[in-house]
Amino acid sequence: MTRDPAFPPLMQGHAVDAGIDPFEKACAMAALGCDAGTIVHNVGANRLAAALIMAPEVPLEQAMAMLPTCGVGFQNALGAIAPPEVAVHLEWAGGLRINGASCGRLRAMAGTTDPAAMPGWLVVGLEMPLMLTDAVPGDAPDRTALYEEGCADVDPVALLEGWARHTLVWITRWEDDGPRALHSEWRGLAHGIGEEITIDGQTGTFMGVDENFGMLLRTGGDTRLIPLSTVLETDT
Rank of each mutant, 00 (worst) to 15 (best):
L216R: 14
I226D: 06
I53K: 06
P5S: 05
R3P: 07
P141R: 08
F23C: 09
D176P: 07
E211Y: 05
V123Y: 09
D142R: 11
E196Q: 14
H89P: 02
N42E: 09
T223N: 07
D17I: 00
E195G: 03
G79H: 12
G214Q: 11
I81C: 06
P68A: 06
P119A: 06
D200T: 04
G188L: 02
M66G: 01
E211W: 04
T69N: 05
L132K: 15
M109K: 10
G19V: 02
P56K: 05
G221Y: 02
H191M: 11
T203C: 02
G100E: 01
V40E: 00
A87C: 04
D155Y: 04
N42Y: 07
V40M: 07
T144C: 05
N46Y: 02
F23S: 11
N99V: 08
W186A: 10
E85V: 03
G194F: 02
P141C: 01
M64V: 04
V16L: 05
I81R: 07
E195C: 10
F23H: 13
H14N: 08
I226Y: 03
E149Q: 15
V43C: 11
G204D: 04
P141D: 10
A135Y: 03
G138P: 05
G37W: 05
G220L: 12
A30Q: 06
A117T: 06
L122W: 11
D4H: 02
L90D: 03
T113R: 14
R224K: 15
G208S: 06
I39T: 11
A63D: 00
A51E: 11
A6Y: 01
R105D: 08
E24N: 06
G192Q: 03
L159Q: 11
I39M: 11
Q75R: 12
D176I: 12
G221L: 09
A63L: 01
M118S: 14
L67F: 04
G71Y: 03
M207Q: 15
D153I: 04
H183M: 14
D177Y: 14
D200H: 13
S184C: 09
D17T: 15
L228K: 08
P56Q: 07
A140L: 12
A93I: 02
L67T: 09
D139H: 13
E185M: 13
G192T: 00
